[in-house]
């Protein structure tokens, strides 16, 4: 690193700042889609309709049973992204969108199982009390069950979020220009470990923020147990 000029360092940092936006986009959009999708999947997993339950179980097995990296390659080759998406979308945008689709489907599977354990962990007496008080099913879910689920699932969700931060680096297999992909490219051309260290620091900082957010949330919900 000692032989890098200030100019090289600044230019590297500038390029990596751009890639960090891509990483953040991948992270943010995956959560945006996977969090609600996971809830729907968990409903399907707990459904009384057997064929639906079986279909969801198969989906969960495939998503959790095969490497995310292979899923990414699969979606890139199977989804005719370039022909579906508008021509005005750049190659990079198309790649990012496919990555977001693959990540969302994959993470929804993990979130679904976390939701399910949280929902099943709420004592049945809570639902019974609500039912006798005349709450509809929707009211019972949103006002009685869900708030308690949120508290219960915070710790495993925190883990999942931190894993997602690091997993975004897998998108490099379909050449999404995220942090790790760019760090690897610069590292090869500069023959310096510097960009890789920058990328590592970036993930570390991002996860420090995620971890802090979760501990704040857990504290705020600690007024009851």
């Amino acid at each position: 690193m000692a032989n890098l000029t200030w100019d090289e360092i600044l230019r590297t940092l500038e390029r990596m700042l751009g890639a960090s936006v891509t990483t953040l986009e991948l992270f943010g959009f995956t959560l945006l889609f996977a969090l609600p999708l996971g809830l729907l999947v968990s409903f399907g997993r707990m459904s009384k309709v057997k064929p639906l339950r079986w279909a969801i179980q198969l989906y969960l097995l495939i998503m959790r049973g095969t490497p995310l990296m292979i899923q990414l390659i699969f979606f890139w080759f199977v989804l005719p992204a370039k022909s579906i998406l508008p021509d005005s979308f750049s190659d990079q945008t198309c790649r990012l969108i496919v990555a977001i689709v693959a990540f969302s489907l994959n993470y929804a599977a993990y979130f679904a199982e976390i939701y399910r354990s949280g929902i099943e962990g709420v004592p049945s007496g809570q639902r019974e009390a609500a039912s006798v008080l005349g709450f509809s099913r929707g009211q019972t879910f949103f006002h009685v069950v869900l708030p308690q689920v949120v508290k219960r699932i915070l710790p495993p969700m925190g883990n999942e979020f931190m894993t997602l931060v690091k997993d975004t680096s897998l998108a490099q297999v379909i050449a999404v220009a995220e942090m790790t992909w760019l760090a690897g490219k610069i590292q090869a051309s500069m023959v310096s470990i510097f960009p890789v260290v920058v990328a590592a620091m970036f993930y570390l900082m991002m996860n420090a923020v995620v971890s802090k957010c979760f501990s704040v949330a857990e504290k705020r919900l600690s007024y009851y147990h």
């Binding site: 007496g125 009685v144 009851y224």
Partner: peptide, 26 residues
Amino acid sequence: GLVFQNFNLFPHMSVLRNITEAPIRV
């Protein structure tokens, strides 16, 4: 009305809200 052996109060709501929730929503 039903009163349970193990109370089944809503743990995330204050005492007042436990009581007012159904009158307001239902």
